[in-house]
Computed example of a mutant assay.
Amino acid sequence: MLRKAVLRRGLAAAAVVAVGAVGAGCTVRPVTGPPAADAKPGGGLAGEAATPRTEPARPVADATKAAPPTRTPTPPPAPALTRTPPPSPSPEATRPEATRPPTLMASGARSDQVRELQSRLRQIGYFTRTPTGYYGSVTADAVSSFQGRRGLPRTGATDTVTWQKLLGMTRKPTRDELRPPTTEPVAAPDPRCLKGRVMCISKNSRTLSWMIDGTVKSSMDVRFGSEYTPTREGTFEVFWKSRHHVSTLYDSPMPYAMFFSGGQAVHYSADFAARGYAGASHGCVNVRDEGKIASLFEQVRTGDKVVIYW
């Protein structure tokens, strides 16, 4: 009996120890809900703690039903642009090329009629050069500009319609207008040139006019000294004439020399005749046309006035 009692006490103590060992291990996560499918009978876990059950998703309210739709304001229509229609071209400008009037003069032509065309265009400001009788790019541009202002096709060639319009706006050119004595138009004379016998010389127009009591007797192209050897300006008198003069400083010919201030004189220049305004004198007044300076040399007297001005 005593041995049985001891045995029972020993079993009871072992049970207590077993229960304490279970409580000292990893904390067991409580399982909510029914046991997992892989749980042992009696409530034990087969492996890792069972994954908690996921609650079914609740339906979310339709946002489009919950809030009214937002309206985007419609912008007002843009105002219509008002455009001014271009001016209607003249019948001549719209005429088919095959039916256009015949051409009288065009680029490359050379004739007295071209010289008259240039002179007439010059009368009304479309051609600013001396008439040459040659229909080049400058003449074509002048004709094109004239045609554009008259509503004609801007061809640059002179047809019968262009020619008739030009004739109606201009007068017949004079001999001097067709073949002017100077390359540039002769400047208005300085007031000092209006009395007596004067060689009136303008640096601005690069012309010399021989005048007697305010009347122009002849005119010619001239050039002057360079920046470093300028031609003097002012009122002078011819103090010496030398028909076959040669410069003692530059050893260059100075035919028909008419001295007016120191070594400066009016004379013919072969270099001017050959190179034009590409060169310059050493202070003298060079004349390009030998025939004109020869005639002037015969008319000018010692003591005649020389006026050089801008």
Rank of each mutant, 00 (worst) to 15 (best):
R8M: 13
R9W: 11
G10R: 13
V16F: 02
A18K: 04
A18Y: 03
G23R: 08
G23V: 12
V31R: 14
T32D: 15
G33A: 03
A36Y: 11
D38V: 13
K40F: 15
G47A: 06
E48R: 11
T51R: 14
P56V: 09
V60S: 00
A61C: 11
A61D: 14
A63F: 00
T64S: 03
K65D: 09
A66R: 00
P68L: 04
P68V: 00
P69E: 00
P76E: 01
A78N: 09
R83F: 12
T84A: 12
E97D: 06
A98S: 09
R100G: 00
R100I: 00
P101T: 03
P102H: 13
T103C: 09
L104K: 10
S107T: 09
R110V: 08
D112A: 13
Q113C: 03
V114A: 02
R115M: 10
Q123D: 13
G125S: 12
T128Y: 12
V138C: 04
A142I: 03
S145K: 15
R154S: 13
T158K: 00
T158F: 02
D159Q: 06
T160E: 15
T162A: 02
Q164C: 09
L166A: 07
G168I: 08
P173M: 10
D176W: 06
E184L: 14
A187P: 05
A187T: 08
D190H: 15
K195R: 14
G196Q: 01
R197S: 11
M199D: 04
C200L: 08
C200T: 06
S202W: 09
W210Y: 11
M211K: 02
T215S: 14
S219V: 13
R232Q: 06
R232M: 08
E233I: 07
E233F: 02
G234P: 05
W240A: 10
K241R: 10
S242K: 12
R243G: 01
R243C: 00
H244Y: 10
H245F: 14
V246R: 15
V246M: 09
V246S: 11
L249P: 03
M254Q: 01
M254D: 00
Y256I: 07
M258E: 10
F260V: 07
G262I: 01
S269H: 00
D271E: 14
G283C: 07
N286D: 09
L296F: 04
E298S: 13
V300D: 00
T302L: 04
D304K: 08
V307I: 01
I308N: 02
Y309P: 04
